Simulated assay, not measured.
Amino acid sequence: MSRVAGIVCAASLALYGASCFIVPATTPKGAPQTEAGAVLGQPSAISSAAESASWSPLAVGAALGLLMAVATGRPALAADLENGEAIFNGNCTACHANGNNSIVAEKKLKKEALVQYGKYDVQAIMSQVTNGNGAMPAFGDKLGPDDIEDVANYVYSKADKW
């Protein structure tokens, strides 16, 4: 997909670059000029070229770029579950592999256990990750707020699948 986007971007830049090669009108020596620099009695090459253009290469390039961004981009989510999964794998799997708990066996990350302990909520999971509780250490100093939100959303999304 990025290759297609690069090709479209290059094509739009080429169209825009081609529009920059409008030959400026030259004035013969000694010819009377108007304020804008055009020769009296002759149409201006710049104004006639601008008036005859029915489309703008810049507008076409912008439209193509927007179309590619919409067509190939993934939706912006409040939480980045891929980032949450990476953070979980790097920090949490030592104790919580597959949603289990190797320290306190009954306090798993599975939906039933989270509901039982009042943690089946993204905010509650974020609080647990940030502040820790019992045997679980606090990650508030180690992880940023966005990372904590991402890992909490990841755990919440996986709780009924583990």
Rank of each mutant, 00 (worst) to 15 (best):
M1R: 12
M1I: 12
A5M: 13
G6Y: 10
I7Y: 12
A11K: 06
A11P: 03
A14T: 08
L15D: 01
G17E: 05
C20Q: 15
I22R: 14
P24S: 12
A25F: 10
A25R: 09
A25C: 12
A25D: 15
T26L: 14
P28C: 08
K29S: 14
K29C: 05
K29Q: 13
G30C: 02
A31N: 01
E35Q: 08
A36G: 08
A36F: 09
G37R: 07
G37W: 06
V39H: 02
L40G: 00
G41R: 02
A45V: 08
S47G: 03
S48K: 14
A49K: 04
S54Y: 05
S56L: 06
S56G: 06
L58H: 09
G61Q: 03
L66C: 07
L67C: 11
V70I: 14
A71G: 14
A76H: 07
L77H: 07
L77M: 03
L77N: 02
A78D: 12
A79K: 11
D80A: 06
E82I: 15
E82T: 15
A86V: 13
C92I: 01
H96T: 00
S102F: 04
S102T: 13
V104Q: 06
K110G: 11
K111S: 10
E112Y: 09
Q116C: 05
G118T: 08
D121E: 09
D121F: 05
D121Y: 05
D121A: 11
M126F: 06
Q128P: 00
V129D: 01
N131F: 02
N133I: 03
A135M: 02
P137F: 00
A138H: 00
F139L: 00
G140S: 06
D141N: 14
L143G: 01
G144D: 15
G144Q: 14
D146V: 13
A152G: 03
A159I: 03
D160A: 15
